[in-house]
Amino acid sequence: MQDYQKRLSLNVLAYAVQKNTDPAQLCHLSGIELDTLKSESSPSLTVQQINALWLNATELSKDSFFGLHFGESLQVAALGVVGELIRHSQTIGEALTQAAAFSHLITDLLTMSVNRCGQSFTIQFIPSAENQASSPLVFRQMMDFFMAFTLHEVDGLILQKIRPISVRMPVELADLPEYIRVLRCQSIQNATDYALEFDSRFWDELILTADYELQAVLLRKVSALDEAHTTKTSLSERINNFLLANAYLGVPTLDAIAANLNVSSRSLQRKLQEEGVTYQQLTDSIRKSLALHYLQTGQHPVKEVSYILGYNELSAFNRAFRRWTGTTPVSYQKGQLL
């Protein structure tokens, strides 16, 4: 399945480069390998890596409106098959409805809701509470991006600059002129929610690239991707993948991993029990794999490996390693370096 979040991250990187940002430095600061980002077969980026990418792109580009300007410049083709489905919808209303239905394939940050009422229709951007609290700066940049991107891509579908009737979003008075320019709306209300309101006459506007037969094919393809995306792997596998992907951050506590998965610690323990495994067993397996890897490379002394894996005392690491392998970390490392 195509990784749309990674695809969007690649476009973040490409836009940052246009703003005279060094891609190698940006990836390094964000804990991302550039080759990994470009490879479709590599693991998905973690939430931390995506957030770091946006944060560092904003800082290195020296553009406090990075997300807003990125949304203004990105083309719908960057969304792959989802973008193609939008382009080949029959009308603006249909395209926006499709975009809202599959927005979760693009981002975990928000969901979209499209509502038509009387003389207008409204696109609401509903943020995830978890992401909103994680990093206010990153959150603002990403919300700015999605609002600007949605508005400017509608233009490309009908070759007409559409102006919203009103915009609702949190905005500082000093920033208002730039939001007015990019969002093309004088009526920007400082609010706690995020919404674009349009005249209803645009709802049935025909899209220039509309192709009903191709749309049907694309819709089947996107629906299949959506089904694959929402099919849950086992909880233990998801945790194992998360721990491996975030190995550079150390091994988190049960409470920390539960918070990341948006469940209670007790619920997490119960679900793992149902799969016949404990969190301790999962972390032990990860620690063993990482310990063997770090010791085999010979680049880290035993004490440093112990610290990386979250052991407060070297003696505790020694006991765990002997339990895993029947020997001590020092003896194992010496044997690997002979």
Rank of each mutant, 00 (worst) to 15 (best):
F321Q: 07
Q269L: 04
E304A: 12
K288G: 04
L268M: 07
D284F: 05
L268C: 07
D284M: 01
G276D: 09
R270Q: 15
Q281I: 10
R319Y: 06
P301D: 11
Q296R: 13
G298K: 13
N318S: 10
T328Q: 08
V305S: 04
T327I: 09
P301V: 09
S306V: 01
L290D: 08
H293Q: 15
T297R: 11
I286A: 03
K271P: 02
L309N: 01
S306C: 06
Q281T: 13
T283Q: 06
Q299W: 05
N312K: 14
H300W: 11
T297E: 14
L268T: 08
I286M: 00
E275N: 12
V305R: 04
G310K: 05
R287F: 03
S285V: 06
G310D: 06
L268V: 05
E304P: 00
T327K: 02
K303V: 14
G310A: 05
E274T: 12
Q280L: 08
A291C: 03
T328W: 06
G276Y: 09
L272W: 01
R287H: 04
Q296L: 10
Q280Y: 11
Y311T: 04
Q269I: 10
Q281G: 12
R287V: 00
Q299S: 11
S289V: 10
H293G: 13
S306G: 08
T278I: 10
G310H: 01
A320Q: 06
G298N: 11
T297K: 14
